[in-house]
Design a protein around this nucleic acid. Structure first.
Lengths: 210, 210
DNA sequence: TGAAAACACGAGTCATTACTCGTATTATAA
DNA sequence: TTATAATACGAGTAATGACTCGTGTTTTCA
């Protein structure tokens, strides 16, 4: 007769440990990159033994996933908040500002987020967490394109959204590695690229309907 | 009395081995990426023992460097050949075609070149070989900008060249992972991005002087 | 209050991989 | 032809790093 011993779920202590481990992971990821980060270094920095770390996470990937999930909600909220208004009648200038400034600010504030996200590593072999972040940005840009360039075909919108995400990912490191006025210039440049690209796609919001 | 024994230099056999190793490295790099490629796998594929591999290359990095050097000369020649003419009076259309088509063709033909080149790995910690390739492209784009947008400040040209290289690197994977008509669309998209970006920078070649 | 779950530890295991080393064979040139 | 450089081998070494496991402590709750 096996007594079905019911599980009791995480204790407060455990939940705190998890947060500590994720904080430590964020800091190690930001310093060394996801690939080069070691689970022992994360455990160390969290003030936890390797054994304890594996009590909460089955492997390194799970840590990255959990961290990505933690960031993702906040990131999406940041992104969406700035885009709640009607874009269709708005000057391109403003659309781009609202599209770019919040995520750039977020990424500058959370260096690990970039590490989690850029994470190209092996060709076309993205990790779960990187894929989720990518998809999240993709969805949002696709939504913007639908709104400001409704005459585009769906497949062209899809491609343009992919291209835009890649541009965002590619220019982001230039922004992060600069500071002060140079960083501002890089941000201006990112906006210029996207603005001119969107315009050339035939998205001309702000024009009176013919 | 030590007899000063003079070295004899590489034998034909050795030079062939080197080529075989580089070919093998190209194929492994293309499959697994530079980071994940193991020297034993390269030796295997070259039909050579690990010991022999290390007779010719001190470490993995040297292999990557040698391979990059082998590609680089050919790549630069390809790139430069298409840009020998006077760009200043040429329609933007044509400039972009000449700038994009040859390197894209080259990269599609040499999958390892992309692996060597994209190689972002740890943030701002590029390998020697990746840095050299990057610099090579950077120089060429900077030269184009000087020619078609001479009124830009040097530092703006510098930044714009960096941005252009990043865009090229970012969109290239989208091209590589597609085929047929979809690949062509991706190439069109890369051109559209660069064309509209250059135009927005104030580069208007082909216009009659005011 | 006491049994079981959750938490905690950290030395140790195991797999991976860059690189070495002792030895043997082949080419070169005096 | 013969000493020596160049080539060749592959089992072995050493470092790394993800993950385990035996053991002990703390919390929960019936």
């Amino acid at each position: 007769m096996s007594k079905a011993q019911r599980p009791r779920g995480r204790q407060k202590r455990g939940l705190q440990r998890i947060e500590a481990i994720l904080d430590a992971a964020a800091s190690v990821f930001a310093e060394r990159g996801v690939q080069a980060a070691t689970t022992n270094a994360i455990a160390d920095r969290a003030g936890v033994s390797p054994g304890s770390l594996y009590q909460f996470f089955g492997n390194k990937e799970e840590i990255a996933d959990a961290l990505a999930a933690r960031y993702l909600e906040e990131f999406q909220a940041t992104f969406d908040a700035a885009l709640r208004d009607d874009l269709a009648g708005m000057p391109m200038e403003n659309i781009i500002d609202r599209m770019i400034d919040p995520p750039v600010a977020f990424m500058l504030q959370h260096p690990a987020f970039e590490a989690l996200f850029i994470d190209l590593e092996t060709p076309s072999e993205r990790t779960e967490s990187a894929a989720r972040v990518h998809q999240s940005i993709l969805d949002r840009i696709a939504a913007i394109l639908r709104e400001i360039a409704p005459e585009m075909t769906a497949s062209q919108q899809q491609l343009s959204a992919e291209v835009s995400v890649q541009i965002f990912k590619a220019i982001m490191p230039l922004i992060v590695e600069r500071s002060g006025a140079e960083r501002d210039s890089a941000i201006v440049e990112l906006k210029r690229v996207l603005k001119s690209y969107f315009t050339s796609l035939g998205a001309f919001p702000g024009l009176p309907p013919s």
